[in-house]
Amino acid sequence: MRILVTGSAGFVGAALTERLLARGDEVLGFDNHNDYYDPALKEARVARFANHPNYTHRRADLADGAAVDEAFEGFRPERVANLAAQAGVRYSLTNPHAYVQSNLVGFVNILEACRQHEVGHLVYASSSSVYGANRKLPFAVEDSVDHPVSLYAATKKSNELMAHTYSHLFGLPTTGLRFFTVYGPWGRPDMSPFLFAKRILAGEPIDVFNHGQHSRDFTYIDDIVEGVIHALDRPAAPDPSYDPVAPNPGTSSAPYRVYNIGNDQPVELLHFIDLLEKHLGHTVEKRLLPMQPGDVPDTWADVSALRRDVGYAPSTSVEVGVERFAKWYREFYGV
């Protein structure tokens, strides 16, 4: 198939692109290579597949509607994986306009282009952050997500609402995937595995918020990519059992789906740090601090709907995943 991947220089986007090319798809990558974190890492990710005969790369911004339209017009994608976004909960507290441009304006541009060019299926990245102030565990797609605690979460919830509108009005099949704490080789330097690894190897103390009481549904990158591909290959369809009197937030009478995509195995943050120390060969001082604004104490993905509908089956334990990440980190940074 011809698949357009936005955010193809990003963590998940690059890993997905590599897998799609390996199975024979033709991919157009779309990424603005912004400097939210080190652009050199983005360049290194793209270098893994930049010369593949079935790959084309376009450097442009999702908020540039003309650039988005040109990409669709020239490539004519059959599927779209929209993984580009302004990421990060804490960054949204100080740079809210970046989230509006990328996650709202950019997403409208993608939806419109998908509609105009009759794309067969749009799969887009949502986030576990949409559960916000919800404390019921595990988080299920049937749960309310009406109490976000960061602007980033609010934009991701908005994406789901916007997607449903296009599915309802125009019959565009859309699937939203709520990612749960993705980690692994080639990951994002602003996320905790990178931050911890850098400080552990430098012999510097690390800040552990919520006094170390956090737990996260850490999900290894290979499992995430497998789930995204399974979703791409199965366009959303109307739910024949959808009841408008008692609606299920994860389905619709329109061709619309929302799923959790996680490991379904929450891990205490302190245990994750212990594993990093073990595989990096150093111990570290831990400064236990209060919880930060916009953060949540625990995440845990109920992935039963994704298992049922697309055969999703995460298989990488945190012990294996951390070991692979630590090995890659040492090799990539030469430490």
Score class of each variant (00 low, 15 high):
M1A: 13
R2T: 05
L4V: 09
G7Q: 12
A9Y: 03
L16F: 04
E18W: 01
L20C: 10
L20E: 09
A22P: 00
L28E: 02
N32K: 14
P39H: 12
P39T: 12
A40T: 14
K42Y: 06
R45D: 06
V46S: 02
V46M: 02
A47T: 03
R48F: 00
A50P: 00
A50C: 00
N54S: 05
R58H: 04
D64T: 08
A66L: 05
D69G: 09
E73M: 02
E73Q: 07
N82T: 06
A84P: 08
G88E: 07
Y91K: 07
N95R: 15
H97C: 05
A98E: 13
V100L: 15
Q101I: 05
Q101E: 15
Q101S: 15
N103Q: 12
V105H: 10
E112W: 07
A113K: 09
C114P: 12
Q116K: 15
E118C: 09
E118L: 10
Y124M: 11
Y124H: 15
N134L: 15
K136E: 08
L137H: 10
F139E: 11
H147W: 06
V149Q: 04
L151S: 09
A153P: 04
K157V: 13
S158E: 03
L161P: 02
L161H: 11
Y166V: 06
G176E: 04
L177E: 09
M191V: 13
L195S: 04
F196M: 12
A197S: 15
I200D: 07
I200E: 05
G203S: 08
I206Y: 11
I206K: 12
D217S: 04
D222T: 08
E226V: 00
V228M: 01
V228A: 03
P235M: 01
Y242S: 00
N248A: 04
S253T: 05
Y259I: 10
V267G: 03
D274G: 12
K286H: 14
K286A: 08
R287H: 14
P290R: 13
M291G: 15
V296R: 14
D298L: 14
D298R: 15
R307W: 01
R307A: 03
R308T: 10
V310Y: 09
A313R: 11
V318R: 02
E319A: 09
E319T: 11
V322I: 15
V322S: 03
V322A: 04
E323V: 00
R324C: 01
Y333I: 13
